[in-house]
Write a protein that binds this DNA or RNA. Structure first.
Lengths: 199, 199
DNA sequence: GACAGTTTCATACGAACGTATGACTTAATC
DNA sequence: GATTAAGTCATACGTTCGTATGAAACTGTC
């Protein structure tokens, strides 16, 4: 794989995340990547294809990891913890990823069927996990998809807010391992209590 | 207030929400609003000023309502329910609003100080509410801002996802009052259990 | 009905956009 | 070292963007 291609992928992820699909221009991306203006056309064909390449690069490992954790052995409760940890760490390991996924949700960009198919198994795996949780009595009755939404809401929203907020106002520094652990533990705690059975 | 101006505000909200700030063009907005291309310049001065006008129109009533509910009489638990209801209903009464607020969070658009000042009292009021909840024993110990984030995550994320998902896949139809009630009750339940004291 | 102020209109401008093109450079093969 | 394929480069094309401009069409006042 050509170095120009990887430089483009790396910078494109950063610039798309920072400015959004329409806000980012090929000129900005190529300039910051230190490559020629024509490189996007040559290596990817178009701006949209470059965006999809970045998206795929982000979604593939997330999808794989979430699906894997869902099918782990162990109690549903333990796996729910692990899914939250996986999503959280994935989004935070590269903050740009959460912004990508949110813009994706906003639907400002046309998506290919391939991208869609990359996301489907994730939500299916999560629904399955919640159903097992209900069978094991960890999750109370209700539509599984509602719980899936509640599960994903916190990692995405936390990422969205904390990256744009003055760190001094935050209860923990999200750029350190210790700070991140606080956010993660909080989210897990809220979700597990939130879905638990009445006592 | 001129009719052209209000038509612009209405259509701009819709188009900005649908396509994002950079994706929406003045030409699209004015064409769909049925007004002249120059109307944006004349009535607002610039595209950005139009965006800010829309944002202010959205944030002002939300800010007022949330602040009012926070300072209501009644138990903290009841007020938390009411805040969730207020945010939820506000976002769902016009789905575009949630999309605006998310793009705002993504930071793809430069914001004025006035817009910032419109948002500050909301988060302060919410922090105060959580602290009262902790005093009353409804909310367990922990950084109030963490709970505030958890409280807002669900309404925003639910809106974001359900608007772009095939309704047939959803557990309830978000376009009907009955469907919305299901989502709201779910969110309230998850949050109140999630922040509650261990028993 | 002439006037003044306001709003609308068609149109023009320069800048920035995504993409296309063909010459140039590099690297590998024989 | 000639040939070929792959990659890089500067540059040009047509389009669309936000904005500016001045004429035309309103609206109310005297």
């Amino acid at each position: 794989m050509s170095e120009t291609r990887t430089r483009l992928l790396t910078k494109a992820r950063e610039v798309f995340a920072r400015e959004g699909y329409h806000g980012a221009s090929i000129r900005t991306i190529t300039r910051e990547a230190g490559v020629n203006l024509g490189a996007v056309t040559y290596h990817f064909g178009s701006k949209q294809a470059l965006y999809h390449a970045v998206l795929e690069e982000i979604l593939t490992p997330l999808s794989a990891r979430v699906s894997a954790v869902c099918e782990d052995s162990g109690s549903a409760r333990a796996r729910i913890r692990e899914v939250l940890r996986a999503v959280f760490e994935h989004l935070w390991s590269n903050p740009d990823q959460a912004r990508f996924m949110v813009e994706l949700r906003l639907g400002h960009v046309e998506l290919t069927d391939e991208i869609m198919e990359l996301m489907m198994p994730v939500s299916q795996a999560l629904v399955g996990l919640i159903q097992e949780g209900q069978r094991e009595g960890v999750v109370r009755e209700g539509a599984p998809l509602l719980f899936v939404l509640s599960m994903m809401a916190q990692p995405v929203y936390f990422m969205l807010v904390t990256r744009n907020t003055d760190p001094a106002l935050l209860p923990a520094d999200p750029t350190t391992d210790g700070g991140r652990a606080i956010y993660l533990e909080h989210m897990i705690e809220v979700f597990l209590r939130g879905v638990s059975l009445p006592i």
